[in-house]
Design a protein around this nucleic acid. Structure first.
Lengths: 227, 227
DNA sequence: CGTAACTTTGAGACGTGTCAAATAGCGTGG
DNA sequence: CCACGCTATTTGACACGTCTCAAAGTTACG
């Protein structure tokens, strides 16, 4: 339902900003103008408690939204892949920070543009509401997972959800490090690594390299999740 | 900002439904008509995946919103105290169930009434948005707590938040059982009990009875939370 | 006053975190 | 193109915390 579409450079209008391209985001029934911006690995896209003046769409790469506890430990709220909208807030400020996991192209929209489109076009308003509903649901699923599941089950659930995002369900390339996964699942790097190793031993997955995962036994993966 | 106000029975209009009273809920800048309904301890107010046709306000007592995992374990998403709105959804169906913790009086509003008021009155729409933002924020705080904190810290944080809801910050009467607290904090009953006992040993709190908590050392309580 | 539900306490098992070290992968510069 | 060094990942041994199971104690209510 969401689709990012980079405009082919019109030869007559010289863009004034070197590294930035204009682009259009199709959301609901509206087309919203934005600016394409590149962020390098680990670069901050917006900070926690910053004024939420923009809304973002991942064009390529991956983005993480992250919160830091008072003691400095971090929790990764969510990973965002191409096509995902992030940074949408109900309040005037961002509740968390966003950082590029890898080098990433991000479409930056004015928040007011999106809100105006949502107010003017019912279908767009509905899409925005649906987006909020999904976010809410995911936040609660996440809390439930952290409370109810063990290390192995969390990792299995994580892989399953991630694989569901891609066309090829038999293999996936993880954009993020073990540390990122650990902070998302509220585990240590070691526990995540051990979970991967265990699944490889059980022939549930194969690991040609650390970041590449072959999903060999989909059934076992699903069984693990709900353990 | 929210206030429940039971209408004094107008002598001329006979209410047709015996056990139910009409009442008005002041929300944002609107006054919304609803029906006051009583639920007894552990009674279901609405079920998971049920059509979300109503919105609810706690008048007296306490309510829990709850989800069940595929294996039957339950997680209490949130406790709702007098004045709290619950059951507000973005999607057509309820993402969780709601049950009365104790005997509780609940004000039941038509969802459409609230949505109409929000659409017509900007201040009310803003209030609804603020409500959604708070819910979102709390869901994420909760996930963060489950991921980052130990048993003692979770219980301390729980007590602190609960105490903050009442006028008297030096003592509180827990409306819910240890089992409810455990399922909210993703712990076992025993772990919750041990955390209480430990805090009593440290003179952080006193427990005249299982449900009554005297907060003796507010500073220690805050320190515990962030451990 | 008795019974059922709730709470507390104890002992031991299990799982994850911690610390330390070995290994693999990757980009950089010679 | 290879060697180097840095970072990421894996593995192991052990400590610590929470869960499990069992039983005693308490409270509320008929």
């Amino acid at each position: 339902m969401q689709h990012v579409q980079t405009e082919t450079s019109p030869p007559l209008s010289a863009r004034t900003v070197g590294a930035r391209d204009c682009a259009v985001f199709e959301f609901g029934a509206s087309r919203i103008n934005g600016v394409r911006s590149r962020f390098e690995r680990n670069e901050e896209i917006f900070g926690q408690d910053e004024q939420a003046e923009h809304v973002y769409v991942v064009h390529s790469g991956a983005v993480r939204t992250v919160r830091y506890s008072s003691e400095g430990r971090r929790q990764i709220v969510c990973f965002h892949l191409p096509g995902d909208v992030f940074g949408v807030e109900f309040s005037p400020r961002h509740a968390f920070a966003a950082e590029a996991v890898n080098d990433a192209d991000v479409l930056v929209l004015r928040r007011s543009s999106l809100e105006r489109a949502a107010a003017e076009t019912p279908a767009t308003g509905a899409a925005l509401l649906a987006l909020a509903a999904r976010q809410m649901h995911e936040a609660q699923e996440h809390a439930m997972m952290l409370g109810l599941k063990g290390a192995g089950e969390r990792v299995a659930a994580f892989l399953t959800r991630l694989a569901g995002r891609f066309a090829d369900r038999s293999a996936l390339d993880l954009p993020m490090s073990r540390a990122d996964i650990a902070d998302h699942l509220a585990l240590t790097i070691e526990s995540v690594s051990r979970a991967f190793t265990q699944m490889e031993r059980d022939s549930t997955i194969a690991l040609p390299s650390a970041r590449r995962v072959i999903l060999r036994d989909w059934r076992a993966l699903h069984q693990l999740q709900s353990a």
